[in-house]
Design a protein around this nucleic acid. Sequence first.
DNA 1: CGCTAACCGAGACGGTACGTCCAGTCTTGCT
DNA 2: AGCAAGACTGGACGTACCGTCTCGGTTAGCG
Lengths: 196, 196, 196, 196
Amino acid sequence: MEGSSKRPAGRPRSEKTRKAILKAASRLLKRHGFEEIATQQIAKEAGVSTATLYRWWKNKQAILLEAYLETARELVPYGKGGSPLARLRNYTVRLAEFLKSEEGLVFLRLLLAIQERPKLRKAFYKSVFLPRRAEGCEVVREAVKAGELPKTIDPDLTINLLIGSQILPALLGQEVSRELAERAFEMVLRGARGAR
Amino acid sequence: MEGSSKRPAGRPRSEKTRKAILKAASRLLKRHGFEEIATQQIAKEAGVSTATLYRWWKNKQAILLEAYLETARELVPYGKGGSPLARLRNYTVRLAEFLKSEEGLVFLRLLLAIQERPKLRKAFYKSVFLPRRAEGCEVVREAVKAGELPKTIDPDLTINLLIGSQILPALLGQEVSRELAERAFEMVLRGARGAR
Amino acid sequence: MEGSSKRPAGRPRSEKTRKAILKAASRLLKRHGFEEIATQQIAKEAGVSTATLYRWWKNKQAILLEAYLETARELVPYGKGGSPLARLRNYTVRLAEFLKSEEGLVFLRLLLAIQERPKLRKAFYKSVFLPRRAEGCEVVREAVKAGELPKTIDPDLTINLLIGSQILPALLGQEVSRELAERAFEMVLRGARGAR
Amino acid sequence: MEGSSKRPAGRPRSEKTRKAILKAASRLLKRHGFEEIATQQIAKEAGVSTATLYRWWKNKQAILLEAYLETARELVPYGKGGSPLARLRNYTVRLAEFLKSEEGLVFLRLLLAIQERPKLRKAFYKSVFLPRRAEGCEVVREAVKAGELPKTIDPDLTINLLIGSQILPALLGQEVSRELAERAFEMVLRGARGAR
DNA sequence: CGCTAACCGAGACGGTACGTCCAGTCTTGCT
DNA sequence: AGCAAGACTGGACGTACCGTCTCGGTTAGCG
């Protein structure tokens, strides 16, 4: 009864088209800055008309953001093997490596673009950052349970220090290396262990 | 040993005009995003013709960058009073406050805008970041001398942690508060003290 | 035999817009010199964006030329009533009057502008001058048939003399009057009748 | 008294510079249209500063006009040998040849350029056209005296027909040949002889 | 011979038009 | 109704060029 999902009249939205657009946008994001990419380029690359772009997305930013999210869902996962602490160290190192890679540049570009638009920034924060942050805090709490970290630790602050210490050099174009990442991790770890 | 200061032929560049342009650009930067500011706006605000803009700068970006650098030389100084450690803590707190202020937003915009242009990033790194970083490391070394921090500490890494932990929330639009900044400082401090 | 009228894909060019542009250009041509008219003026007057101008015309000159041709197809017709000879005399007088009028000035301006661009000149020659010239020669031939002019007459040369003797004073800003035009006509007529 | 020619103090105007400017302008006039020539080009070509240009001439037009007049004082003279009539025929032919030459093109450009500015046109009319016109009328009157032409002839009109019939084809880019010029002359001559 | 006024080259400057580019909307006919 | 093609508005961009200006350096001729 009730037709569950009353199919709307007319030709349904082409999933193929949607994917083609996001893929084209993704491809362009790897090579160009946010503001350099023209909507017409996306349309052409995807074999699609500009009107179709705007039928489904509010503007260029929205397309590029979604394109990024689509490809970036599983970037730098926290991993599974080993003790919680080992996973945290491993995460820090992989984050450093990601940030200096081509994909990391795309991420930084995104971060740039959303600064200008509070709404996008909020959306990004909620749909991308918060989930991974929660995941990170969980790992920290596991480490506490496993007795690797003291109960007094502030998981949020810990993660902030780990990520922040990797993002800063990436933003400045400073050298980013596995070894530096490990040293940062060690220092944060000591800070965490020394917590009252 | 001649030439050295041989004045070039022709009407000399008007210093007044140059300053008017940079000031106008600065003023606009405080209210608007990098991409929102129009060249003609800068020109009009400065009482200058567009041609003059392009005579001296390659494009809009270059003007805005220089405008920022010009006004931003003395942002968030390390301060003078108190022990080295107190100065570091104070710096961290003031940095956090700066980053959430209007001026901090301009800074973040800039930081992210230069990601697109390696040359600009390098220039920014050398002329803005390195000098302040050297200053910061010096304060850390003073703290070591004063016995407030162990000799084994890595000044660069320490500063990276302090700044990075403040910049990350700023980029994401997370809450930034004096208290959070102090807690980050405490944690870094513990990490530093625990160094072998 | 297919295609022939195969409508091209996409939104068709707006005929309304095209006409609005040419009309606006025509209106401006009456008041201002070729070089004084700004593209933005044409656009504004036509309620159109500059981009649209340049989508269909290579540059300002091309717009103004076409605007002129559009409105000037029927300038100074050869008339219908009376004997062929009377029509020729009448034409000469009206040409003189046209040349000293506002519209005549536009015509002279056009003549100026096309001197600089051989292609435009050729286009103008073919699409504006030749047809009217043919018409003029026809009238001369009719006069021959009617016995008003001898068979030995050279129609082209006759017309050249009639028009040339009116254009020269116009170019120089000499006085141009009905009486002078008539005297020129009489003299050319005598020359024609005296032909061997 | 009143010093008549009280030499002004200071360095006198450099005649060399003046000539260099006019020569440079002349050279450019041969290759480019009136509106295509940039003041800076003239200055550079003449090895002179733009300021110097505007110290002595009101604007670009004035420079180019004077440059033309300077070089064109003796274009197409009426000649000396032979009977008055022969000189008139000769003049017509040489005028036709001049008009289709490179220098003729410059002349036409000038003629049309001054249409936009009544003052220039008047100046040109008075200082260039009238003197040569007087000369032409004189030749006609000599022909009358020599019995080659009737007393009733209108010299001005005659010259207008001769010149106009050559200028018109030149403006339109029609073929201009010696033979056509001669035929025009013959026709005008017959018209003149037939005068009551 | 030195003074001084006016000249000059170099080139910066304000103003203004040009022609290009791009975001986002609208129109048409096909599917 | 979805969609490709592509015309259209609005407005910024960066270039070109006119005529003015400001420098320092140069060249007469007067004292």
